[in-house]
Design a protein around this nucleic acid. Structure first.
Lengths: 234, 234
DNA sequence: ATACAAAAATTGGTCCAGCCAAATTCATTT
DNA sequence: AAATGAATTTGGCTGGACCAATTTTTGTAT
């Protein structure tokens, strides 16, 4: 086990995950070596093994059964969830554009007056910071009164926390002007919601995220060595 | 700590979560008692405390910093994620209807020929079981070539694993006929995808989930004591 | 009194050894 | 061949110990 400044159990979980997908430890459905064996194999304490297993269990990779053993679950799609770090800024924005447009459309039908007031208080004062932005999009999602959509909206926002995003936002030359544009976008969306105009709400949200995409595309640096793979065909 | 047949660290994590939301342990942004203190407070070993903290950390409730302490993060929206058990069958289907329609529309534009072939092999043989159903919807999501959409599709499916759903599916009197209907729906979607007709793909997917909603609504039992709260205003 | 550096205390990270309880395996009996 | 029960395997949990990062306190020089 090589030390890499992360917590040991996280590193181990990563190794275990890799050795599972390459079927070195077990084929899907099969049993893994016992905790005590894994402990020796990876030269870490059994405690660390157990912590890593909790992580894999919470991620649905593995099933740990007392007295029986550790089983490699066979749902290959789990990878998409586990590899959420592999989601690039542009595909994320594309997903947000499609999903949040639907959210806005449904929110126009279901949002309550008190939520509209909250939204007004949030938007009217002027351009907002990143956290204000988050609250606006989240409040609109809550306007759907659909918990699955609220949850999805939350995850769409959280998936954004990647290094790439930070670097790109940092490159935006005139952030104030951008914030001003986005502020106007938010106003358009809000007005559509207040008029209960679902189609207009969808269009406004779509256009807003189109603007975000454009700003970020201009700010993106093709020379960035990690830029590869973050683009995709549309 | 009362024993409840679950694993101890999971139970503890539940208690900690409760005592955090009621702000008995710390206010948002503040520091929690040290691991050794928590260990005494809840009468469990420090190891168990650490395991529970891993769970809370993975859920974004808490931030653990070596040498510094454990901090209660202040993102109230995390609750929606944590309380995913509170998502009812109908709001889930509503979310699927909106999101998967978008997924189908985009998939019609981006799906590869080999993916279309896979889809054909999956659908043509005839009505499929629950797992086949999962693979079809997932394959369409993969057709978007957008990792965030794939991830969302995965979570839309996983959120379905609730008792309520099982009971309702169990009540469907003529499951074969239902599977036949869904099979035809799948064919419509597939043909739209093969024609690269994005609007038709959206419509077909929407109609498919409309059919699912109807079947489940007929199968739902208003007398079910847990039925309360699973409906919502549209 | 202030600023800075060193030392001490706090706190999470890891390891180890041991015992318990659930599940499995294997030998024995019928 | 089936049923029973003992032995083994395996995960669950505990307590103690030591290390390393951080924070707090203390001491010293300015």
């Amino acid at each position: 086990m090589v030390n890499k400044s992360k917590r040991l159990y996280q590193e181990l979980a990563q190794h275990l995950k890799a050795d599972l997908t390459s079927e070195k430890l077990a084929k899907p459905g099969e049993k893994l070596p016992a905790e005590r064996e894994l402990s020796e194999m990876y030269s870490v304490s059994r405690t660390t093994v157990r912590e890593a297993l909790i992580m894999l269990e919470l991620n649905g990779v593995v099933d740990v059964r007392k007295g029986a053993g550790i089983f490699y679950l066979d749902h290959p799609e789990k990878d998409a969830l586990f590899h959420s770090a592999a989601i690039g800024p542009f595909e994320l924005l594309q997903a947000r554009q499609w999903f949040e447009s639907s959210i806005a459309e449904l929110a126009a039908k279901n949002i309550s007056n008190s939520q509209l007031k909250e939204l007004k208080d949030l938007i009217l004062p002027g351009p907002c910071d990143d956290d204000g932005d988050r609250r606006i999009h989240f409040l609109i999602a809550e306007g759907t009164h659909n918990n699955m959509m609220i949850k999805t909206a939350y995850e769409l926002w959280e998936a954004r926390q990647t290094d790439m995003w930070g670097r790109m936002i940092g490159r935006v030359t005139d952030l104030d002007a951008v914030r001003q544009t986005w502020h106007e976008d938010h106003q358009h969306i809000m007005h559509a919601l207040m008029r209960r105009d679902s189609k207009s709400a969808r269009r406004s949200m779509w256009q807003h995220l189109e603007n975000v995409k454009n700003v970020l595309f201009e700010a993106s640096d093709i020379d960035d060595p990690e830029f590869d793979g973050y683009l995709f065909v549309e």
